[in-house]
């Protein structure tokens, strides 16, 4: 890993714990990890149960916390997993078996369970029929309706800058969502057009930008470079590559301090 990894407290906010995950190679970066799709395919759910302990044993505290899938986990299992405070966010993604939709009743029931309601929500964005801006807007409206009584609003992380579209068709809608909802955070992996990321940094400020690698579909080294070269101060960069995620997901810094 490069100088950035060596001199900063890097926390990757978004990746899946596949066998070739960079956590298993040399480096100091830490990661918030979702179970690999393979672990979720195990009907006995032992893969998911083993996920955390295996990671911990092999990587120590470089596995800084987990992203708990909301879809695809049986009800009882989900509630049991919630007891474990290692999970730092709820992950909404169609990657897993039974991926469902963002507005499934099951999703809303689970988001409001005791133990879940204090966790930030992360949404895998840009997937046709699942999390394009139209569906994300509907999700935010509903979240707003449900949470009228709860303030401050619950943090939501949109991965990939809220869209994945290589002709840029959804950039404007994504920008409007970020600008219209101050509790939404932007995760940076795979973003189309660096000038969109620069624009979002200018408009939202560094505090709402979270570095993520998007592994395995994206590459940690490219994604870290995408953030490293953004304009701004060293403090901004430190916030984007780790500080913001540590604060949002309640992860201690490398030296054990609370950010």
């Amino acid at each position: 890993m490069d100088m950035l990894d060596a001199h900063h407290d890097v926390l990757d906010a978004h990746s899946y714990a596949t066998r070739d995950h960079p956590i298993f190679s040399a480096g100091r970066s830490r990661y918030l990890l979702a179970p690999s799709p393979e672990a979720m395919e195990d009907e006995s759910w032992e893969g998911l149960e083993a996920f955390r302990t295996t990671l911990w044993r092999q990587t120590g505290n470089r596995a800084a916390g987990g992203l708990l899938p909301v879809h695809g986990v049986p009800e009882e299992r989900f509630e049991r997993l919630l007891q474990d405070r290692w999970w730092r966010a709820l992950l909404l993604t169609p990657v897993y078996r039974g991926g469902g939709a963002l507005d499934d009743e099951q999703v809303w029931d689970r988001l409001e369970l005791a133990g879940a309601s204090s966790l930030p929500i992360m949404i895998e964005c840009g997937v046709e029929g699942y999390s394009r801006p139209q569906q994300l807007e509907r999700f935010l409206e509903r979240l707003n309706e449900r949470l009228l009584e709860s303030r401050p609003p619950r943090p939501v992380v949109f991965t990939h800058g809220g869209q994945l579209n290589i002709s840029g068709s959804h950039l404007e809608a994504a920008a409007a969502m970020f600008n219209g909802h101050p509790h939404i955070y932007l995760e940076t992996s795979g973003i189309y057009r660096q000038d969109f990321l620069e624009e979002m940094l200018e408009q939202l400020g560094a505090d709402r930008i979270l570095y993520g690698s998007g592994h395995p579909w994206m590459d940690e080294r490219l994604e870290l470079e995408r953030v490293r070269i953004l304009p701004g101060s060293d403090a901004d960069r430190s916030a984007m590559i780790g500080g913001n995620a540590r604060r949002l997901f309640r992860v201690l810094s490398m030296n054990g301090c609370v950010t």
């Binding site: 660096q194 969109f196 590459d219 080294r221 490219l222 470079e225 995408r226 070269i229």
Partner: peptide
């Protein structure tokens, strides 16, 4: 809009 630096970096450095 997409930065040539990053596009070269991904091919040459990674």
């Amino acid at each position: 809009g997409c930065l040539p630096y990053l596009e070269l970096h991904k091919m040459l450095a990674i």
